[in-house]
Write a protein that binds this DNA or RNA. Structure first.
Lengths: 156, 156
DNA sequence: TTCAATCAGGACTAAATTGGTCCTGTATTC
DNA sequence: GAATACAGGACCAATTTAGTCCTGATTGAA
């Protein structure tokens, strides 16, 4: 099947957690705690999110990460692109134009481009806010201690 | 990135070859020859295509495989589904309803379903004929001998 | 000024997936 | 009955991905 990498899945969980308080600064340890995603993995995710402009980072003692925009201004496409590179179904049609010498002859190209565009559009229309919508109401208070305890299998 | 499996890529090449003569019977060896895809791999592909109803098979001495429909009646979605299973971005939303116990609580579900549907639609709208369109005119005669010689890197 | 907290940026290992091969059996035709 | 081809697995190898760890740079507070 067309598989989303597990890291992307985690990223959405972690970013959702951050989205509960836009502007607030979250440390890696804190996010790991709240989401159940292992700390080194959270760190890895954030190192991809920040250069992509989805989060901002602050070093030092009171540092951490913060969402750079509200959740409804962050598309799933951006998250996937930050982690996995350009959204494309085949390797040869991946943004860089001329890796494949036979590109202009390649009979498949036109068809894949159509598919890729459609998929890209679909992913751009779904925002982080869409993904977390149903959980908004009971979460902030309850989560503070209780969800930290239960490992909270990220995706599914 | 969201990756199409290489097998799917090969499948499209092989099916395109078959589509040049709908109804004709092609042996695995023949298809391997014409496309450059290794014979055992072609065999593996066909073993997935036939149960999925995309091709028909005929055993025995004059046997082989044939496309069961013209190329413009075969969608890319069908090919992907035959090889890789249902088209879905996450494992938990893959057709079987209840692998994930928290499904009804799962806050992500709604969002992914939207994405999956969009992708599925996109793939259903592109047919095998779309993928091979540009090569239709010069192919049949020229290909008979010359393309068999050059290994013909499948996709790209 | 020094120390502790925290991100930055890699290198590296282990596990899972995928690609590819091969073998044995069954159907069909000549 | 012999040759041809598909059917259906089991299996191994290679690639990719997930996950960990280490060293350094930056910041804020004691």
């Amino acid at each position: 099947m067309i598989r989303l990498s597990k890291l992307t899945d985690y990223a959405i969980v972690v970013l959702s957690e951050m989205a509960r308080q836009v502007g607030a600064v979250h440390t890696v340890a804190h996010l790991a705690d709240r989401t159940g995603v292992p700390a080194p993995t959270v760190a890895k995710l954030m190192k991809a999110m920040t250069p992509a402009g989805l989060t901002t980072s602050q070093r030092g003692a009171a540092g951490g990460y913060a969402l750079s925009r509200p959740a409804d201004a962050i598309s799933i496409a951006e998250i996937i692109t930050a982690l996995d590179g350009p959204i494309a179904l085949t390797a040869c049609v991946d943004g860089a134009d001329s890796q494949c010498g036979v590109e202009q002859l390649c009979p498949m190209r036109g068809g894949w481009e159509k598919v890729n565009r459609a998929i890209r559009n679909a992913l751009e229309e779904v925002t982080l806010a869409d993904m977390m919508a149903p959980i908004t109401f009971p979460a902030p208070a309850a989560a503070t201690t209780s969800t930290a305890a239960q490992p909270a299998r990220p995706a599914h």
